[in-house]
Amino acid sequence: MTDFTARITMPETARRGDVVPIRVIIRHPMEREITAEGLTPLPRRIIHSFRVTYAGEEVFRMALSAGVTANPYVAFTTIATETGTLHFEWLEDGGAVHRREARLVVTA
C-alpha cells in the first residue's frame, strides 16, 4: 500500500540494561466498515496486528481494533540487551504486510 508510512522514534544508542522508550506512528486510515443506508459503502481496512522483534526475539506485540485512531500511535519500551536490529511488522486486513527496521547500538 502506497499510503503507508511509519515514523519510529527511538535512541540510536543505549547502555546495556537501559530501558529504551520507542514511539511509533504510522500513516494509515484504520477504515471502519461503512454499510449504513445513505452512506457510501466502504470496506473495512485496519491494521490488526503490530509486532516488534529485537535481535530475533519478540519484545512487543499489539492487537488493534477499529477502536484505535486513524494513524495509530503507540509507545512502549524494551531493554537494551545487545547491538542489533529491531524489526517492526504491521499486518493489515486483506493480508498486506508492512515492515520497517531500526538499529540499536548497545554500549557496555
Partner: peptide, 28 residues
C-alpha cells in the same frame, strides 16, 4: 470500552524484555 461497537479496543503483549509496563496509544 463499554460503549464502543467493539469492546476490545487494543491489547498489548509484553515480553520480559519490555523492561517495564508502560504503554501509550490513541483510541476512538
Amino acid at each position: 470500552s463499554e460503549r464502543n461497537p467493539v469492546p476490545r479496543v487494543a491489547s498489548f503483549h509484553l515480553s520480559h524484555r519490555a523492561g517495564r509496563a508502560e504503554i501509550a496509544t490513541r483510541i476512538r
